[in-house]
Protein backbone atom coordinates (compact mmCIF):
# COMPACT_ATOMS: atom_id res chain seq x y z
CA UNK A 1 0.00 0.00 0.00
CA UNK A 2 1.42 3.39 -0.92
CA UNK A 3 1.99 6.04 1.69
CA UNK A 4 -1.08 8.27 1.91
CA UNK A 5 -0.11 11.90 2.19
CA UNK A 6 -1.48 14.21 4.84
CA UNK A 7 -4.27 16.34 3.47
CA UNK A 8 -4.67 14.28 0.29
CA UNK A 9 -7.82 12.30 -0.17
CA UNK A 10 -7.90 8.73 -1.30
CA UNK A 11 -10.77 6.49 -2.33
CA UNK A 12 -12.08 4.30 0.47
CA UNK A 13 -14.46 1.43 -0.23
CA UNK A 14 -15.95 -1.16 2.03
CA UNK A 15 -19.02 -3.29 2.55
CA UNK A 16 -21.42 -1.40 4.75
CA UNK A 17 -24.24 -3.61 5.99
CA UNK A 18 -23.65 -5.88 3.04
CA UNK A 19 -23.55 -3.19 0.38
CA UNK A 20 -20.48 -1.69 -1.20
CA UNK A 21 -19.98 1.98 -0.41
CA UNK A 22 -17.17 4.34 -1.26
CA UNK A 23 -16.05 7.85 -0.58
CA UNK A 24 -12.98 10.03 -0.29
CA UNK A 25 -11.00 10.44 2.89
CA UNK A 26 -7.75 12.04 3.93
CA UNK A 27 -5.68 9.86 6.27
CA UNK A 28 -6.79 11.58 9.45
CA UNK A 29 -10.54 11.26 8.83
CA UNK A 30 -12.13 9.20 11.57
CA UNK A 31 -14.27 6.26 10.53
CA UNK A 32 -17.17 7.73 12.51
CA UNK A 33 -16.99 10.97 10.52
CA UNK A 34 -16.59 9.10 7.25
CA UNK A 35 -19.67 6.97 7.92
CA UNK A 36 -21.75 9.92 8.98
CA UNK A 37 -20.69 12.73 6.71
CA UNK A 38 -19.28 11.02 3.59
CA UNK A 39 -21.56 7.99 3.34
CA UNK A 40 -24.55 9.56 5.09
CA UNK A 41 -24.98 6.70 7.53
CA UNK A 42 -25.85 8.97 10.44
CA UNK A 43 -27.20 6.24 12.68
CA UNK A 44 -23.79 5.84 14.29
CA UNK A 45 -23.33 8.66 16.78
CA UNK A 46 -20.33 10.43 18.21
CA UNK A 47 -20.41 11.07 21.94
CA UNK A 48 -16.87 11.65 23.19
CA UNK A 49 -14.24 11.03 20.51
CA UNK A 50 -11.94 9.53 23.08
CA UNK A 51 -13.18 5.99 23.22
CA UNK A 52 -15.04 5.99 26.53
CA UNK A 53 -18.73 6.55 25.81
CA UNK A 54 -19.24 3.85 23.18
CA UNK A 55 -21.91 5.70 21.17
CA UNK A 56 -19.86 5.29 17.97
CA UNK A 57 -19.39 1.52 18.27
CA UNK A 58 -19.68 -0.34 14.97
CA UNK A 59 -18.60 -3.79 13.87
CA UNK A 60 -15.45 -4.02 11.79
CA UNK A 61 -15.19 -7.47 10.26
CA UNK A 62 -17.74 -8.52 12.83
CA UNK A 63 -15.89 -7.17 15.84
CA UNK A 64 -17.34 -4.34 17.94
CA UNK A 65 -14.96 -1.39 17.89
CA UNK A 66 -14.98 2.36 18.48
CA UNK A 67 -15.34 4.13 15.16
CA UNK A 68 -13.98 7.34 16.75
CA UNK A 69 -10.69 5.55 17.43
CA UNK A 70 -10.48 4.08 13.95
CA UNK A 71 -9.44 5.83 10.75
CA UNK A 72 -11.59 5.58 7.66
CA UNK A 73 -8.55 4.32 5.73
CA UNK A 74 -8.31 1.41 8.12
CA UNK A 75 -11.73 0.19 7.02
CA UNK A 76 -10.78 0.09 3.34
CA UNK A 77 -11.68 -3.22 1.77
CA UNK A 78 -13.27 -4.56 4.92
CA UNK A 79 -16.74 -5.16 6.28
CA UNK A 80 -18.46 -2.57 8.44
CA UNK A 81 -21.80 -3.12 10.10
CA UNK A 82 -23.83 -0.38 11.70
CA UNK A 83 -27.21 0.08 13.29
CA UNK A 84 -28.78 0.79 9.90
CA UNK A 85 -28.32 -2.86 9.00
CA UNK A 86 -30.13 -4.42 11.94
CA UNK A 87 -33.80 -4.29 10.95
CA UNK A 88 -35.31 -6.24 8.08
CA UNK A 89 -35.61 -4.52 4.72
CA UNK A 90 -39.29 -3.89 5.41
CA UNK A 91 -38.46 -2.20 8.69
CA UNK A 92 -39.34 -5.11 10.95
CA UNK A 93 -37.19 -4.74 14.01
CA UNK A 94 -34.67 -7.42 14.89
CA UNK A 95 -35.20 -9.43 18.01
CA UNK A 96 -32.72 -7.30 19.91
CA UNK A 97 -34.25 -4.05 18.69
CA UNK A 98 -37.72 -5.25 19.60
CA UNK A 99 -36.56 -6.28 23.06
CA UNK A 100 -35.12 -2.82 23.54
CA UNK A 101 -38.44 -1.23 22.63
CA UNK A 102 -40.44 -3.63 24.76
CA UNK A 103 -38.26 -2.98 27.80
CA UNK A 104 -38.03 0.80 27.43
CA UNK A 105 -34.28 0.32 27.09
CA UNK A 106 -33.81 3.66 25.39
CA UNK A 107 -34.97 7.19 25.88
CA UNK A 108 -33.13 9.76 23.78
CA UNK A 109 -31.67 6.93 21.71
CA UNK A 110 -28.35 8.65 21.10
CA UNK A 111 -26.20 5.99 22.76
CA UNK A 112 -28.41 3.12 21.58
CA UNK A 113 -26.88 2.37 18.14
CA UNK A 114 -23.46 1.74 19.65
CA UNK A 115 -24.92 -0.45 22.36
CA UNK A 116 -26.84 -2.51 19.83
CA UNK A 117 -23.70 -3.08 17.76
CA UNK A 118 -21.71 -4.15 20.82
CA UNK A 119 -24.46 -6.55 21.76
CA UNK A 120 -24.62 -8.00 18.26
CA UNK A 121 -20.97 -9.00 18.56
CA UNK A 122 -21.27 -10.03 22.21
CA UNK A 123 -24.31 -12.25 21.68
CA UNK A 124 -22.89 -13.76 18.51
CA UNK A 125 -20.02 -15.16 20.55
CA UNK A 126 -22.41 -17.61 22.18
CA UNK A 127 -22.52 -18.73 25.75
CA UNK A 128 -25.18 -17.74 28.19
CA UNK A 129 -24.01 -14.56 29.81
CA UNK A 130 -25.50 -13.82 33.20
CA UNK A 131 -26.54 -10.40 34.42
CA UNK A 132 -23.10 -9.63 35.80
CA UNK A 133 -21.43 -10.41 32.49
CA UNK A 134 -24.01 -8.42 30.60
CA UNK A 135 -23.48 -5.41 32.82
CA UNK A 136 -19.73 -5.76 32.46
CA UNK A 137 -20.05 -5.72 28.69
CA UNK A 138 -22.44 -2.76 28.85
CA UNK A 139 -19.95 -0.88 31.02
CA UNK A 140 -18.18 -0.05 27.77
CA UNK A 141 -21.07 2.32 27.05
CA UNK A 142 -22.44 5.38 28.75
CA UNK A 143 -26.15 6.09 28.83
CA UNK A 144 -27.46 9.11 30.71
CA UNK A 145 -31.20 8.51 30.31
CA UNK A 146 -32.12 5.02 31.37
CA UNK A 147 -30.02 3.87 34.30
CA UNK A 148 -29.34 0.81 32.11
CA UNK A 149 -32.07 -1.38 33.66
CA UNK A 150 -34.18 -1.65 30.52
CA UNK A 151 -31.28 -2.74 28.40
CA UNK A 152 -30.12 -5.30 30.96
CA UNK A 153 -33.65 -6.74 31.00
CA UNK A 154 -33.81 -6.75 27.22
CA UNK A 155 -30.55 -8.68 26.90
CA UNK A 156 -31.54 -11.15 29.60
CA UNK A 157 -34.74 -11.83 27.68
CA UNK A 158 -32.82 -12.45 24.49
CA UNK A 159 -30.37 -14.76 26.22
CA UNK A 160 -33.28 -16.68 27.70
CA UNK A 161 -34.95 -16.95 24.28
CA UNK A 162 -31.72 -18.17 22.71
CA UNK A 163 -31.35 -20.71 25.46
CA UNK A 164 -34.86 -22.04 24.90
CA UNK A 165 -34.30 -22.24 21.16
CA UNK A 166 -31.13 -24.23 21.64
CA UNK A 167 -32.93 -26.65 23.91
CA UNK A 168 -35.88 -26.97 21.59
Amino acid sequence: MPRLKAGEKSRISFKLNGRKVSGDAEPRLLLADFLRHEIGATGTHVGCEHGVCGACTVRLDGVAIRSCLTLAVQANGRRVDTVEGLAEEDGTLSRLQAAFRRNHALQCGFCTPGILMSLEDFLARGGEPDEGEIREMLSGHLCRCTGYSGMVRAVLEIVEEMHEEQNA
Binding site: R36, A41, T42, G43, T44, H45, V46, T82, V83, E84, L86, A87, G91, L93, Q97, F100, R101, L106, C108, G109, F110, T112, P113, L116
Partner: peptide, 14 residues
Protein backbone atom coordinates in the same frame (compact mmCIF):
# COMPACT_ATOMS: atom_id res chain seq x y z
CA UNK B 1 -38.37 3.91 19.17
CA UNK B 2 -38.53 2.31 15.74
CA UNK B 3 -36.55 5.15 14.17
CA UNK B 4 -34.10 5.50 17.05
CA UNK B 5 -33.39 1.76 17.09
CA UNK B 6 -32.65 1.61 13.40
CA UNK B 7 -30.39 4.59 12.97
CA UNK B 8 -33.08 6.86 11.59
CA UNK B 9 -33.08 9.41 14.38
CA UNK B 10 -32.96 13.03 13.27
CA UNK B 11 -30.47 14.62 15.63
CA UNK B 12 -28.93 17.98 14.85
CA UNK B 13 -25.72 16.56 13.37
CA UNK B 14 -27.69 14.11 11.21
Amino acid sequence: DAALLSGQGRFIDD
